[in-house]
Design a protein around this nucleic acid. Structure first.
Length: 347
DNA sequence: CTAATTTGACCGGC
DNA sequence: GCCGGTCAAATTAG
């Protein structure tokens, strides 16, 4: 591995700054508009702060020579997105066991079967910062549908799917796996994206990406359960973040096969969101904590071709409300233009 | 009562 | 046959 492209960190930096600028503009608009929904301004402010934090983190990581990988910025939250081809998970500080089950599907590459959904993993470290894993939540409603002991893993893996799967065609699922060594680390793998509109009925609060798990792997050890996955107001989402968080996006295959009806970019799909960002919501905590995070990585120039995983551009365009983030772009051109069109941003 | 979780069985890929 | 992932009946929670 070579140096982790500074390039793209640079790009990320630019991206962040541009985003921050955009957000600031939005804020300006909202400030002038008397009728702006409550909370919107605050949310914007937080996002702006977040952008700055990210930018700073990126700068920090660039600054340090060794910093390809971990470089978790000082005790803050680091989101790491890595496109990981099935087997080559580059060394990650935390999960040594990384490979344990990555083989999973196919990846036979060429044969390109179905089954491959966009899939990305977040590693979340929950430590002293917050109560414990309890309140991890991402604003989506998940229903647990299984739990399995995984070969080499000390803790069982939990399988969750979107609560609305039946009513809407939301095939999003996630798996939560507690790290072998560090019980404080949870590896959450998301597959598919939410198509459900689970926002509160009247309020068009867009679901925000980046689901977090309600994990519970060991009843015994962790009394702390959290089954709090009900709908949340996404606005709080940005408020709390676990101490360390890392995102690895991997396997970018978008199988539209699975989403027959969603293939085309029709207004229908507005709700697609699949990107993730900082939204961790503490159900309990409604306080105002800021967190900082750095996101880096996502170096994958190769396959994003279809770039569907998170098509920020399109989704942003289509759904005004989801503006939360577009952490990464596909490769080269992501941010050439991102234009939020004014008013609608998040209603 | 409804809805979510639990848990062993089942299924498909390797 | 092993293993990861899902199903579904039974159970528990709200």
């Amino acid at each position: 591995m070579e140096n982790c492209n500074i390039h793209w960190e640079q790009r990320s930096l630019v991206n962040e700054l541009a985003q921050g600028r955009e957000l600031a503009r939005q804020l300006q608009i909202h400030l002038n508009a008397p009728s702006s929904p409550h909370g919107t301004r605050e949310l914007l402010v937080q996002k702006i702060i977040l952008s700055y934090e990210k930018a700073l983190s990126i700068l920090n990581s660039i600054g340090s020579p060794s910093g390809c990988e971990q470089q978790q910025p000082t005790g803050h939250v680091a989101i790491r997105m890595v496109e990981s081809p099935p087997h080559s998970l580059n060394g990650s500080p935390w999960s040594e066991d990384s490979d344990r089950e990555f083989k999973d599907h196919d990846n036979k590459d060429s044969s390109g079967k179905r089954k491959t959904l966009p899939r990305w993993t977040q590693q979340i470290r929950v430590t002293s910062g917050m109560g414990l894993e309890g309140p991890l939540d991402d604003g989506f409603s998940w229903r647990k549908y299984g739990q399995k002991d995984i070969l080499g893993a000390r803790y069982p893996r939990g399988y969750y799917r979107c609560t609305h799967r039946n009513v809407q065609d939301c095939f999003a699922t996630k798996q939560v796996q507690r790290s072998n060594e560090d019980p404080s680390i949870f590896e959450i793998t998301y597959r598919g994206r939410h198509t459900c509109t689970q926002a509160s009925p009247g309020t068009s609060t867009p679901p925000s990406p980046s689901p977090l798990p309600p994990e519970r792997t060991e009843p015994q050890n962790n009394p702390v359960e959290s089954q709090q996955n009900q709908q949340h107001s996404q606005q709080n989402m940005l408020l709390n973040l676990p101490e360390g968080l890392r995102v690895i996006s991997e396997g970018l295959d978008i199988s539209e096969e699975l989403f027959p009806s969603f293939n085309n970019p029709s207004p229908l799909n507005n709700n697609y969101l699949g990107s993730f960002s900082p939204p961790f919501a503490g159900p309990t905590t409604s306080g105002t904590n800021y967190f900082s995070m750095s996101q880096q990585g996502f170096g994958a120039e190769q396959n994003i071709q279809s770039g569907d995983i998170i098509s920020p551009a399109t989704s942003a365009a289509n759904s005004p409300s989801v503006g939360l983030d577009f952490p990464f772009g596909q490769d080269d051109q992501l941010f050439p233009n991102f234009s939020f069109d004014g008013p609608g941003f998040f209603s």
